[in-house]
């Protein structure tokens, strides 16, 4: 459906997107993650044809972005970051104008606008100027705009930024609902959102793709080692370290932040191939240490994200 090859974009001397390769199949919901300034918005803007790539190619269906920008724009619905709309227009007029430009047939226009208004919950604000709407409603108008002519591909740049938790849930539901039939690419820096809505996650850092896959595969591929947290009383670091590192599979024992009171908080990192919690427990049982807490850290997307984007 969408094929991106060694896509690169410079702004002057600054390299914003660095040789990105991406292949997106029909029906996928892809989440683009990355810290601020990683190149998410630039990538999306190039996909929509708003920015011209410095080099590399984008093909959507059978069209190349350089040769057939108009055909590609017809296939795409795009919601830019923070939904910049015409402030002096009434919501209804605005949607009508978009329907004109997107060349929706006259008889389909009203039903389509009505359907979008229902889907995005715009019925109460249809006759109010966009400039007077709250941020959440603006975002919904933007969403209605992007889906108005039922495009095959939706590109949403931070669709939930600036919304309150209720609105975030609503917008997510909408995305999930329409995602059953459409290809959706959305960018976000809210990790739980990506985890909740996307089939596939692409993490970008400093213009490069650093990870690409489903949430599960990302978690697995990263977990070369896992961490077991232990809190002990009546123990000293040296002897604990000596005892525990003798277990096969333990890589290191480090001290986590201390909360005082003679309690020793430890992070034991170990190979994830073997579950050694039993061995650790048995070791501790053989001493006179008092075990207060004992749990294994599960790999979260957050950890993976931080690990991938904080390096260098």
């Amino acid at each position: 459906m969408i094929n991106v090859e060694s896509l690169t974009r410079y702004f002057g001397d600054i390299l914003a997107v660095d040789r990105i390769n991406l292949d997106i199949r029909k029906g996928e919901i892809v989440g683009l993650l990355g810290p601020n300034g990683a190149g998410k918005t630039t990538t999306l803007r190039m996909l929509t044809g708003f920015l011209r790539p410095t080099s590399g190619s984008i093909r959507i269906k059978d069209y190349g972005i350089r040769e057939h920008p108009l055909e590609i724009k017809k296939l795409l619905g795009y919601l830019p970051e923070s939904a910049p709309l015409y402030h002096d227009m009434i919501v209804y007029d605005y949607l009508h104008y978009v329907a004109d430009i997107r060349q929706i047939a006259k008889e389909k226009r009203l039903p389509r606008i009505r359907k979008m208004a229902d889907l995005c919950g715009l019925n109460e604000v249809m006759h109010r100027p966009i400039g007077e709407l709250s941020k959440g409603y603006k975002q919904r108008v933007g969403l209605a705009h992007s889906m108005l002519d039922d495009p095959e591909i939706l590109i949403l740049d931070e669709p939930t930024s600036g919304l309150d938790p209720n609105q975030i849930v609503e917008i997510r539901e909408i995305i999930k609902k329409i995602g059953k039939e459409k290809t959706i690419i959305l960018s976000t820096h809210i990790l739980s959102e990506a985890e909740a809505t996307c089939d596939r996650i692409v993490i970008i850092n400093q213009g490069k793709i650093v990870a690409d896959g489903t949430t599960e595969s990302l978690k697995q591929s990263d977990s070369g080692e896992c961490v077991v947290n232990v809190s002990l009383k009546n123990a000293d670091l040296e002897s604990v370290r000596k005892e525990l590192t003798s277990i096969d599979g333990v890589l290191s024992v480090g001290r986590a932040d201390d909360d005082g009171g003679g309690i020793l908080n430890l992070r034991i990192s170990c190979r994830s191939s073997a579950d050694i919690r039993g061995d650790i427990y048995r070791k501790i049982k053989g001493t006179d240490w008092i075990l207060l807490e004992f749990y294994r850290e599960t790999q979260t997307l957050e950890n993976i994200f931080r690990k991938l984007t904080r390096e260098n």
Partner: peptide
């Protein structure tokens, strides 16, 4: 200034 330029240009217009 508003940014609607981006919306305008990503619609199918030349």
């Amino acid at each position: 200034n508003v940014g609607s330029y981006e919306i305008l240009l990503t619609m199918p217009v030349t």
